[in-house]
Design a protein around this nucleic acid. Structure first.
Lengths: 261, 261
DNA sequence: TTAGCATCTTTATCTATGTTAATCATGCAT
DNA sequence: ATGCATGATTAACATAGATAAAGATGCTAA
């Protein structure tokens, strides 16, 4: 899982699986090989696949950010998930007749596509790989549930804080955090459509988090200065990510700075 | 799939799978047989499994209603899904180390439990059954996404209306709707914790739907008098349920009563 | 029959967040 | 450098839905 000459994005994909389950080197190679067979470049802010389409392949984000979204007939749009490097968009879609949601690139995206046949063969060849991919699906659903919980019960500040915690933890798991800093190519509008808030209110909330010295967020770069405070504000409990290694950012219980003012 | 002497609840379970995929009679029997091996009775309003537990079996609701929920450390509770007769709680949980959510009975529940081994054997014996179960998982996730969309973008009336549409359609698919009427054992508090609203506001919204002659909801019984109007109010598009047969209740496009006042 | 408890209903008040709109900053393309 | 588009910020105002409290209804049990 170290030498990846002509498939730079593959590194994140393997990293991602390894963050969930231990895999032998041969499993990783099998995966990378399947991934490298069909690679596509997607322009930023364009659809990768759209509601109503016929699902044709399993897609893996090799580089860049994408999102899953769905919209109401009158145009209201909800982002349902973010995809960061290494993330699988949907590993069993081809069982469905038609897509019930859309996927769009946020930044320019490098995509690996695996055909249904290749996918089936790959999982037949390695049970470990198949299990890791299944586990990944479970985590994807767990994240969806956590978002449902947040939208239903958390207030604006808690929602935004939680999103930042989650993304930070996921990026850390694929080694995309350096000195507590990571690239975060989302506009405040994006954050709003993921958290069910207007961009104006997202802005207010971010100001507050900045004012309290908890985060810094400028020029698409996020720094979390007080991870424990952020995790506490968000009530972030990373169990649902089912990572083999706990993220540095804020496990809620036991609270490290529990008695701060 | 007709004779079910000592397993009355099994009927709904098979009905459910058949609503998603065609199955041979032998597949149905295989499923029912696995389901009947371990049956448990659960008291209304008690937990079936709780966050943090070790997942041990695949559970299928044979009779009664249950829900999946998650709560914040300060007690706020969000219902994440409703389980009606025939629904699988989670078909691959045993890949996880610990449950990240809880499941509770709403009414008295009859539960079928399938051990991981039995489940594996069953899916090995019938690819069709395995596919149907996988498809069911996909639909469960699709429903979770639709809830996320609703909580983020729909207002109170739309959310409640959408929930009623969804439940009605799902109950219809397992033949639990008679003359547009179905049993709906949810309190307004339940509806509130599923839609992220207070029970007070749920009450207001229900009054409005009643006032407009759209629904009737008394003594745990729901009647939808104007399915098209309800579907329109909810912007309900049943595609995400991936049913083989469209529900009677309200396909949004093309809108049947589109030009009503 | 009455008491007790859940749920539902209604009203009054309050607040978090939305809406609108204007201004400012930033980066990209010519 | 200039101009333009997109995003961030701020302010003034509007509202959907929360909160609180009290009464009405219906079911269960003694």
């Amino acid at each position: 899982m170290s030498d990846l000459p002509e498939n730079p994005g593959g590194h994140a994909a393997v990293h991602k699986l390894l963050s969930l389950a231990p895999l032998r080197e041969e499993d990783c190679h099998l995966y990378l090989e399947a991934l490298g067979r069909r690679v596509r470049q997607i322009t930023a802010r364009t659809d990768i696949t759209h509601e109503g389409d016929n699902p044709r392949a399993v897609r893996v984000v090799l580089e860049g950010w994408a999102c899953r979204y769905k919209e109401l007939p009158d145009g209201r749009r909800q982002i349902l998930a973010f995809f960061v490097p290494g993330d699988l968009c949907d590993s069993a879609v081809f069982l469905l007749d038609q897509m019930d949601h859309s996927i769009a690139a946020i930044t320019p995206v490098t995509l690996g596509e695996i055909t249904p046949d290749a996918f089936a063969q790959m999982t037949r060849e390695s049970t470990e790989l198949a299990d890791a991919l299944a586990l990944n699906e479970l985590v994807t659903v767990a994240i969806q549930r956590e978002w449902t919980l947040g939208l239903g019960q958390r207030n604006a500040l808690e929602r935004v804080a939680h999103l930042l915690c989650e993304l930070h933890a996921r990026l850390e798991a694929i080694d995309l955090v350096k000195d507590g800093q990571c690239h975060l190519p989302l506009t405040q509008i994006d954050i709003g459509s993921a958290t069910g808030l207007t961009s104006v209110h997202v802005n207010r909330v971010l100001q507050e988090l900045r004012r309290d010295g908890i985060i810094e967020l400028t020029r698409r770069r996020l720094t979390i200065h007080r991870p424990a405070a952020l995790g506490r504000a968000a009530m972030f409990d990373p169990v649902y990510l089912h990572l083999r290694q706990l993220p540095r950012v804020a496990a809620v219980r036991p609270a490290p700075e529990a008695f701060a003012p």
